[in-house]
């Protein structure tokens, strides 16, 4: 929801970035305020995922220019884990499998890392178990998944639900969902979207990265940005997504670019 005079959570100014020496982001500007849901759409290779990984701190992505201010701080002064503890959450496009680490232990370690950072007492296994079982309901997940190794042998939909479960526990200020809808059937999409909708409130913000307008029927954005060639070409309301779905991206080519 757009709230007048709400706090700016993320301010991205003229950001350029590269991976393996290839310039991907070529001047990105974006401002996200508390309470807002932003969607970034765009064709493959436009830089959407690069932006999300850059914001979360993936070591392969290097900022080469511009600045990102998160809650008044320079985001790039923070290590990836510090960003996480300060409330930046990236739901991965391809969540990793970690054989040998139980999902429950993983969730508890992540949850307690944040508690510790906030100066709160860590939850013991018993209390955490109660909490996690309550949050499972957000994504309608079977408790049996808690005892399995993180994402190991999970289906695509189960992995994405597991990401949203982590979001439900970590209660981020800025949640970046990188193609969380890709590869989901309609039932799974509804569950995941419903989960995200339960977690939004006037104090946090969501950045959705997606290929498909379909997601935006379930998570309704306040702003839709179209990204191409490492830049945000245009910004509009949720109706822009429908237009994109219908016409594709070609009509958006800026003047002077073929």
């Amino acid at each position: 929801m757009i709230v007048e005079n709400s706090e700016v959570i993320l301010s991205v100014k003229d950001v350029t970035a590269e991976v393996d020496g290839n310039a991907i982001l070529k001047g990105v500007n974006l401002e996200i305020k508390a309470g807002e849901i932003h969607a970034i759409m765009g064709p493959n290779g436009s830089g959407k995922s690069t932006l999300s990984k850059l914001l979360a701190g993936h070591p392969a992505y290097t900022l080469t220019g511009g600045e990102v201010v998160y809650k008044g701080k320079n985001l790039f002064d923070l290590e990836p884990e510090e960003r996480a503890k300060e409330g930046v959450f990236l739901a991965f496009q391809y969540p990793l499998e970690i054989p040998g680490v139980s999902n429950l232990d993983f969730l508890r370690v992540a949850y307690n890392a944040k508690r510790q950072h906030l100066g709160e007492e860590e939850l013991d296994a018993f209390d955490f178990d109660d909490l996690v079982r309550e949050r499972l309901d957000v994504v309608k997940m079977d408790p049996a998944f808690l005892d399995r190794s993180v994402n190991e042998g999970f289906s695509g939909g189960e992995k994405k639900r597991n990401e949203i479960l982590q979001m439900a526990l970590l209660e981020p200020t800025l949640a970046i969902l990188d193609e969380t809808d890709s590869g989901l059937d309609i039932d799974a999409l509804k569950i995941v979207s419903n989960g995200v909708n339960q977690l939004t409130n006037p104090n946090n913000a969501v950045l959705l990265i997606t290929h498909y307008q379909r997601l935006l029927d379930y998570i309704v954005p306040d702003y839709v940005h179209v990204m191409q060639g490492g830049r945000i070409l245009t910004t509009g309301g949720k109706e822009l997504a429908l237009e994109l779905e219908e016409k594709g991206y070609d009509w958006l080519q800026p003047a002077g670019v073929a």
């Binding site: 990836p80 884990e81 990793l96 680490v101 890392a113």
Partner: peptide
């Protein structure tokens, strides 16, 4: 240890050394 695995854990609030420890521990735990 894959960079992506370590980053996944870091993005959930574990520092680099703890993330590596957890992955090695998981390998040994089997």
């Amino acid at each position: 240890l894959e960079d992506d695995e370590v980053f996944y854990l870091q993005s959930r609030g574990l520092d680099h050394d703890n993330a590596c420890d957890l992955l090695v521990k998981a390998f040994a735990a089997e």
